[in-house]
Design a protein around this nucleic acid. Sequence first.
DNA 1: CCAAAAGTGTTAGTGATACACCCATGT
DNA 2: ACATGGGTGTATCACTAACACTTTTGG
Lengths: 219, 219
Amino acid sequence: MKTPLVTVDIIIFTVMEKDLKVLLIKREIDPFKEKWAMPGGFIKIDEPLEEAAKRELYEETSVKDVYLEQLYTFGGIGRDPRARVITVSYFALINSNEVKIKASSDASDVRWYAVKQLPELAFDHRKIIEYALKRLRWKLEYTTVAFKLLPEKFTLTQLQEVYEIIFDKELDKRNFRKKILSLGLVKETKETQKEVSHRPAKIYSFNRSIGIGEIVEIF
Amino acid sequence: MKTPLVTVDIIIFTVMEKDLKVLLIKREIDPFKEKWAMPGGFIKIDEPLEEAAKRELYEETSVKDVYLEQLYTFGGIGRDPRARVITVSYFALINSNEVKIKASSDASDVRWYAVKQLPELAFDHRKIIEYALKRLRWKLEYTTVAFKLLPEKFTLTQLQEVYEIIFDKELDKRNFRKKILSLGLVKETKETQKEVSHRPAKIYSFNRSIGIGEIVEIF
DNA sequence: CCAAAAGTGTTAGTGATACACCCATGT
DNA sequence: ACATGGGTGTATCACTAACACTTTTGG
């Protein structure tokens, strides 16, 4: 029986330099040579899907330890000019600290692009990124995944910036804090910001008694 | 290159006889001979995924014209004892009127089962149904899909019953009506219920200016 | 006139929004 | 002392939740 090929693709987001970014790789082979694409590739016959996604991400970008969830399976005919290929796409988040270490890990053909300034993309990857972006906004509104875009310890202003950047909208500082604190999502640490030329902010950490990705209506 | 096989499976829900039901088929061949399974099967090499889902559903159960959306892609190794099989599952809703015509369409080995009384299921289908049920509850809360479980014209009590059955929880009649009417989800028709031995209810229809499945916070 | 389900308003409480000033630190 | 971002409270409005009786029809 003829059966389609199966790939996984990973769309990984981070917040960096006050911008929402995705990690892309420049293709070195046809089809779509020289175009940019999300990390991904064919799955192995004895490999679970999510593991394949992690493996491809690590092989191609040296990025690991990310929040990962399945996004959608794209299976239109003609996605790939060579053959029928079905791709199971995964949605990943990583915090900007780890990114600094890993993004430049190999050649310069792996880059973080601001989602507002994407280059020409291979396959149907633009469509996939748009879909992922909707999911990301939804996830921020209704779950606690935002914390996966921040390091272990953060200030409330940093947290608010994550929301503002992704929603592309300013939020009221007082109301934001009231909401986050009343939901008990974070706990204070004893630390404060260092070496800032203004009043230092309190440092918080995520309240681990609430699961990351758990459904909590935030806005 | 070795590549997995790809199937689609459809989990179709309806509300019937004051119960939430799913359509299952008794398998006539191994593996899992005599066990019940969701409709589905291998996709064709030149067939879009969603079309494959519709085709399998129609071939196996004569059910068509359903609300259909992709649910999740299950790809664990060992799902199918014969080979590596990845299944793209679809989530479908149909209203109980159409069901009456079509459910008994062929042999008695196609049956609607109450989700609370499922028989022994093939493959990982129980897990898939549980996942679908969570999605269904979520969809009812945040979108307008409930209307896909009702005929074109319905009473508010019928609508409320759909919610009560799926949430497995009683709702306040006055508050429910206030909410539905204030969201403008329905419009009154000129008709009323006939041949009931009590005050006849007004008949409503879905307000088509709001898309089915559109996100609207209902509860 | 009885049974059955339809239909309808008010109140109290909770959460959302809008808004402006003082505080702590480094230079 | 000034510049910078950190941190805080209150009032209004909208929405939610709880709750019981009257209406219309058929039998």
